[in-house]
Design a protein around this nucleic acid. Structure first.
Lengths: 338, 338
DNA sequence: CTGAAAGCGCTTACAG
DNA sequence: CTGAAAGCGCTTACAG
């Protein structure tokens, strides 16, 4: 059997209380005692049992993160940001994939109410599950990017109106005015906000927004392909398109190639989020950068603050976004010249 | 405070023993009792405390998976396969990212020795950490894809020689004989095996393997770019290249574009693994499919068997791979005609 | 500085 | 079918 603390205590000829202190709170025991206990622990290969410890101290030092499928290049950076911040503060992070079914989601969320984790980071709000529906969680929770619980459950996010605004202003500054938008999944609040932001930004730039230039990219990669094909089949094609995310923009770029259109000479494309697929596309995608690692780290720190009962947790933290010019946008005249 | 089982027992006027049975082992109590206890539990919002339960029953029903960075499109499917199988059998999975440092890796691996998880799936062997170095784990462990512990620690993997063989035979059947290879990270055992497999397969096909046609794609995306540039700067360019993985092949494809070479008309490219980036490339990448979800599920099932003490766990499970023809390979004469 | 004791919240032989 | 009791492996007041 695995040695326990009482084995160590016996070997070191001290009480379990002292053995515990020597190992977890070294300052509380005499030098010699500490040494003896440590040696005993080593000699028998003692490892502390964290579940016993958790039961006793009433915390697990573990965070849960609810995430949708991660195979889309958006979540990994968020996860790493969370993990970095958490590990620094002595927390372990457990990730639960919730896109499969509401049942899966529930079984993960139960880990919080069942005391297996101390707090929860919800970043699957964009997948449309359970939105605004459940009661406000009474255990430490922070939302990432999409708000799915009413205040005062904190959110860490970006301003999606600003994302759209940066994209539209960039395109407009290049002389484009027939600008299209491929919207993201209707289930994602942020996609809706980017769409609204697109309309608002077009207005602010004094540009007309034509209904048929706003298409839905719902349906993942295939949806993106179809959306772009629809746009290119229009009698009056757009000269530029703002895609709600980089994956959609990559899909759009592929459609351009299959139809023999050059990007950016014949048409300008801009994405959003700044994910790896855009960076590695050819040509590399111009996009609006979303600081995912920062968002993750901020959210994790906030959650840990909540768990530790620190006051003054902001309930709405908005991080800045910025334009990342790469190679898929060109001045309108280039298209005209082509 | 959170209600405990004894609160429920009091409300239902039974002993905690009975309350426990009514909730966790319903058949053991009378109908009326069961109903009363359930009602009591609901009325006070009782949730079982899983850490107390774990301490008592001496298991956590949790699996740990050690994974390197996941932002490369390879790991998500593996993770999903693991999670599916695990959830079906009542296990929760905890994932630990280990690429940051050996310290991070250790702190995750400690979760196993510290009793927070029942078993461990090691799939970060390709990142070169700690290889063959640590003692054979004495707690339930299974390795995924790369062997980093000596037998009999089980492995679930593919035959990387076969991966290379399928690729080379495909290229050779298209008439290519000046075939190059861009190798994966030298730290990854499977990359080495693919490289050796390439040499063997070339031999089997009666093709010469020229030293300068085998280059290292070490260094991630940038490494891939450089490797391909080196190949294209050769006096005698290859007419086809087998890239150790799809990301490398995508990098190679970008280099071709930047140099004005058409794929597959001017040069054929084949990858391996069949990841999303290859599927979404333009043109879609021909590759060797590796059944990642199956591998994950198989490994998880094996691990759970180990945990439950089932005998007969195979210590080396090899899953089949297959060629996935898409659009980046063409007959040699096409290149000649060009 | 150290030890005896209580207790975290469950489950499960053992009796009845 | 139900209850009293022990115990999983720790930590931490409380005394000394």
């Amino acid at each position: 059997m695995r040695p326990t603390l009482s084995d160590v205590a016996r070997l070191a000829s001290v009480s379990v209380a002292t053995a515990s202190r020597a190992l977890s709170n070294p300052d509380l025991v005499a030098d010699g005692t500490r040494r003896a206990v440590r040696e005993a622990a080593n000699s028998c290969g003692y490892k502390i049992n964290l579940v016993a410890r958790s039961l006793r101290i009433q915390r697990t030092d573990t965070l849960l993160v609810l995430t949708p499928e991660i195979d889309n290049g958006f979540y990994p950076a968020l996860l790493h940001g969370i993990e970095d911040a958490a590990l620094d503060l002595g927390y372990t992070v457990l990730v639960g994939f919730t896109a499969k079914s509401e049942k899966h989601r529930q079984s993960y969320a139960d880990l919080l109410s069942n005391g297996r984790v101390d707090g929860m980071l919800v970043m699957d709000g964009g997948s449309g599950v359970n939105r605004f529906t459940g009661p406000r969680p009474d255990l430490p929770t922070v939302q990432v990017l999409d708000r799915i619980y009413a205040p005062p459950v904190p959110v860490v996010r970006v301003d999606d109106g600003e994302v759209a605004d940066l994209a539209v202003r960039h395109l407009s500054s290049l002389g484009h005015h027939r600008i299209a938008h491929i919207a993201g999944s209707a289930a994602a609040p942020h996609a809706l906000e980017r769409r609204n932001g697109f309309v608002a930004a077009m207005g602010r730039s004094g540009l007309p927004v034509e209904e048929h230039l706003m298409v839905s990219g719902d349906g993942g990669w295939e949806g993106g392909l179809q959306a772009m094909r629809r746009l290119l089949s229009l009698p009056q094609r757009p000269t530029a398109v703002f895609c709600a995310d980089d994956a959609l923009a990559c899909a759009a770029m592929n459609v351009c190639r299959e139809q023999g259109l050059r990007v950016p000479e014949d048409i300008s494309l801009i994405g959003a989020n700044d994910t790896q697929d855009g960076q590695r596309a050819y040509p590399p995608l111009t996009t609006v950068h979303v600081p995912r690692a920062d968002i993750g780290a901020t959210a994790a720190n906030l959650l840990i603050g909540l768990i530790r009962g620190q006051p003054g947790a902001e309930s709405d933290t908005v991080l800045p976004v910025e334009l990342r010019e790469r190679a898929t946008c060109a001045p309108l005249r280039a298209a005209v010249a082509a």
